[in-house]
Design a protein around this nucleic acid. Structure first.
Length: 422
DNA sequence: TACTACACTGTTCCGAGCAA
DNA sequence: TTGCTCGGAACAGTGTAGTA
């Protein structure tokens, strides 16, 4: 990806201890308040944004802080926004979330004109500071740790605007800032490409699954003929691993989903789910809360879940691919009964018609779709690895531990080294 | 067993009040 | 008056527990 370049050992450079750690002697440290344009001091945004107004001024919320140019933003009426004219943003401003979700960072794209929500602080760097470098410096793992230590509040986390102004960052000479930002941008571009490729592969898989599974020539049968409910209870509490099924990640450990253990004191009434079995929450299945247990041998599930397994005549992988299809989601939604919460009992699920070709055909289809899924899984692994590499590089470059020459880039040829640094 | 009410955590929106 | 902070309300996504 890069031209290899000479790497100079850190001990050959001159370093000094600062209050934010060991830095190269020629680097400065500076309060954010001191590297901000004097005409646009750090401040947060619109307190009460009011109703959405078609011709109003776009207001950037935390959730869109990293994709301001792409997102559809709430627009405040010009009259309301005018009261907060001091927090208007323009291209090149660095934004930092300071309330609720603290530490999210974004850079306002060129040409954008609008304002920010009050959960965001605007930092307009002086000409001596590269905005992309500052953005990266604020995102760096070591900086985020320092921000975490300054955050106050229990129910609602907050990074006080005073603390933001007093927050100290490492500042190399401008050419070095730009070079570091340029290097790390290369990693961002690689991640963007990988994510785009993954999205394309995923769409390809959906299309292939729809084509192979939903064949009008194939006879359909009720799911009840192929599914068997399992209501084994954890009577002697031999299973202590409590699981949940989430919309986004399938089976997860309950303690990872929640900040504390929310399971009942006794797990004796919990249902046991075993490897290869499916489970779903009848009140959430219409939003995707259904999954197959692949990552653990067994687990205990809240009694509200329905646990079942696929039996002979229907290939388990074929069923899994059908379950992810748009048609399956539609049929499950239709099966949901109208009530306060739309629920799908095991009986309702069994009444859904599913196309069932011969078992040999099912296995052949599942094999092809599994291969496509495996490609996506590989891309996921690669995305995780590149993300780790980028974090490692940020750790090294943004502390000056690895130096860059303005003319020649000092990048380790072995990216594993960067990965391990993170 | 199915359904419903309610609890809890985390996030975001926004009204109100305090201090400079 | 303005800047800032506190904290209630609403909402999403998960859970437990009671009752028919």
């Amino acid at each position: 990806m890069f031209r290899s370049a000479e790497k100079r050992p850190p001990e050959q450079k001159s370093y000094i201890e600062t209050k934010i750690g060991r830095l190269p002697r020629e680097w400065d440290i500076a309060r954010l308040g001191d590297v901000t344009e004097p005409t646009a001091p750090i401040r947060y945004g619109v307190v009460q944004i009011g109703p959405d107004t078609p011709d109003g001024v776009p207001i950037v919320p935390i959730k869109h802080i990293q994709r301001i140019g792409d997102a559809v933003l709430h627009r405040a009426s010009p009259k309301i926004e005018a009261k907060y004219k001091n927090s208007r943003v323009k291209g090149g401003d660095v934004l930092l979330s300071v309330k609720g979700t603290v530490g999210e960072v974004g850079v306002v794209p060129d040409g954008f004109e609008g304002n920010i929500a009050r959960e965001i602080a605007r930092i307009r760097p002086q000409a001596s500071i590269d905005q992309h470098f500052l953005s990266l410096q604020l995102q760096a793992p070591q900086t985020q740790k320092r921000i975490d230590n300054l955050v106050v509040g229990s129910t609602r986390l907050e990074f006080s605007i005073h603390a933001v102004r007093d927050f100290v960052v490492a500042v190399p000479p401008l050419p070095e800032q730009r070079k570091i930002a340029e290097i790390l941008r290369t990693w961002d571009e690689a991640l963007e490409k990988l994510n785009a490729l993954r999205a394309a592969k995923s769409r390809q898989l959906d299309g292939l699954a729809a084509k192979l599974i939903h064949d009008d020539q194939v006879e359909r049968f009720h799911l009840r003929e192929f599914l068997k409910e399992s209501s084994t209870r954890n009577r002697d509490e031999q299973v202590q691993r409590v699981l949940s099924v989430t919309n986004s990640a399938g089976f997860v450990l309950a303690e990872e989903q929640f900040a504390h253990r929310v399971a009942s004191a006794s797990l004796s009434n919990y249902k046991i789910v075993r490897w290869g079995q499916y489970a779903y929450n009848p009140s959430r299945i219409n939003v995707g809360s259904i999954a197959r247990l692949d990552d653990w041998g067994e687990g205990a599930l809240s009694p509200m879940y329905v646990v079942f397994q696929v039996k002979g005549g229907l290939d388990a992988d074929f069923f899994g691919h059908w379950l992810r299809s748009a048609e399956a989601r539609q049929r499950i939604a239709l099966a949901a009964q109208g009530s306060v919460r739309e629920t799908v009992s095991f009986g309702d699920l069994g009444s859904i018609l599913v196309p069932v070709p011969t078992i040999e055909r099912q296995q052949a289809i599942a094999k092809g779709l599994n291969a496509a899924q495996a490609e996506i899984n590989l891309l996921d692994d690669e995305i995780k690895a590149v993300t780790r590499q980028k974090r490692g590089l940020m750790q090294k470059l943004l502390t000056g531990e690895w130096r860059v020459e303005v003319d020649t880039v000092e990048i380790p040829t072995n990216t594993k080294e960067a990965e391990h640094a993170g």
